Amino acid sequence: MTTQQVADRFYELSQQNGFEHIQTELYSKDAKSIEPAGGIFTNAEGLDAIMEKGKQFHDMIEEMHDGYCSKPLVAGNFFTCTMGMDVTLKGQPRMKMDEVAVYEVKDGKIVLEQFFF
């Protein structure tokens, strides 16, 4: 798949809340995930580690009130989306979280995700 095709499929699945499906279908087994310094999560290498990080975040959620993912913008081997959620995490007050996510695609698979918030 081209970067545009990966980005379009990413968006399609995100509208169905299919983030686990996004990872299993679109990510390379050797993908890397880069988080902002000082956040709750650390960087991860490999699809299994990325999926485990997602599971850990999901386990922190008490209630998901709303969420969104913008249509992707593609440039070369990269695409970006803005994403966010209105969420109550266990033991925390309700909050809005917004981020910019950048993805790198090689050989039809996402090889890097990086988040900015």
Rank of each mutant, 00 (worst) to 15 (best):
Gly46Met: 05
Lys29Thr: 10
Asn77Lys: 15
Asn77Gln: 15
Leu13Lys: 00
Gly18Val: 05
Asp30Val: 11
Gln15Leu: 11
Leu13Gly: 00
Glu45Phe: 08
Leu47Gln: 14
Ile40Asp: 12
Ile34Gly: 02
Tyr11Arg: 06
Gly67Thr: 07
Gly46Asn: 04
Asn43Gln: 11
Gln56Ser: 14
Leu73Arg: 14
Ile40Trp: 07
Glu52Arg: 14
Ser28Glu: 14
Lys32Ile: 12
Glu45Thr: 13
Asp48Thr: 10
Ala31Gln: 06
Tyr68Gly: 12
Val6Ser: 01
Thr42Leu: 07
Gln56Cys: 02
Ser28Met: 08
Tyr27Val: 09
His65Phe: 10
Gln4His: 15
Thr42Lys: 11
Met60Gln: 15
Lys55Leu: 13
Gly18Ala: 15
Met64Gly: 04
Gln4Asn: 12
Met51Tyr: 03
Phe41His: 02
Ala75His: 07
Phe19Lys: 00
Cys69Asp: 13
Ser33Cys: 08
Ala44Tyr: 02
His21Ser: 12
Tyr27Asn: 14
Met60Leu: 14
Leu73Glu: 13
Ala75Ile: 09
Ala49Asp: 07
Asp8Phe: 00
Phe57Asp: 08
Phe10Glu: 00
Leu73Tyr: 09
Asn43His: 11
Ser14Asn: 06
Gly67Val: 04
Val74Ser: 05
Ala75Asn: 14
Tyr11Gly: 01
Asp48Trp: 03
Glu20Ala: 12
Pro36Thr: 06
Ala37Ile: 04
Leu73Val: 14
Gln16His: 01
Asp30Ala: 15
Gly39Thr: 13
Lys32Gly: 10
Glu62Asp: 12
Thr24Ile: 03
